[in-house]
Simulated assay, not measured.
Amino acid sequence: MTRKPYKRPMSGWWKRDPFFVRYMWREATALGVLAYAIVLMTGVWRLAQGPEAFEGWLQALRSWPALVFHLLLLVAMVYHTISWFEIMPKTMPMMFVGGERVAATTITRVGMIAAAAALVLLLLAWMLKP
């Protein structure tokens, strides 16, 4: 009698564990980064084509579909940023300050604070532009 080897079912493997669901969502946000990189590269390309082409690109960015797209990307990037700083202490070498190991929560919090500060500075620069 010949036995068949056991094969684990692979379809939907990531849906079985909440850790892997979060992992897949985090990885999916990389597609948002790609999409925004394409938007920015298109802007550079249109700029190289002249002022009229660049102005057309700017007008396209002011449309409601573009604003919704940017809002969705903002949500994805906020999630990506939060998850990135949650992972950081697990992936980087141990840090020591004054002979004591820096806690993982400290590393995560400092990263979140730095990201929030960068966001506030960018928003202020945008609001105060001439």
Rank of each mutant, 00 (worst) to 15 (best):
W13G: 10
R26P: 00
M112T: 01
Y6V: 15
W84V: 02
W64V: 10
I107P: 01
K129T: 13
F69P: 00
V39N: 06
Y36I: 07
Q49A: 12
I38L: 15
M88F: 13
A104M: 04
T2Q: 10
E55H: 01
I82W: 11
T91K: 13
E86Y: 04
K15I: 07
R109K: 15
K129N: 08
A66V: 02
A66N: 07
W14V: 00
P130S: 12
M1Y: 08
K7Y: 07
A118K: 06
T105K: 11
Y79I: 06
M10Y: 05
A116E: 09
Q59W: 04
W84Y: 12
W45I: 10
M24L: 14
G43E: 03
V75F: 12
V97C: 04
G98D: 13
A125V: 02
E52W: 05
L128C: 05
A48T: 08
G50A: 04
P5K: 10
V120P: 01
M112C: 09
E100M: 10
T105E: 15
L122H: 09
V33Y: 05
V102I: 10
M127K: 13
T42Q: 02
D17E: 10
L122G: 13
L71H: 02
R3T: 06
W13V: 06
A103I: 01
D17K: 07
A103C: 04
V97P: 01
Q59C: 03
S63F: 03
E55A: 14
R22S: 09
L47F: 13
G32F: 01
S11T: 12
G56V: 03
A37R: 02
L31P: 00
I87W: 11
G43K: 04
G99D: 04
L74A: 14
E27F: 09
M94D: 14
R101S: 03
S83I: 07
I38N: 01
A48S: 13
T81R: 03
G98F: 08
D17Y: 09
L67K: 12
I107F: 11
L31R: 04
V102R: 02
L72D: 00
R46G: 00
V78T: 11
T42V: 05
K4E: 14
L128M: 14
V78K: 02
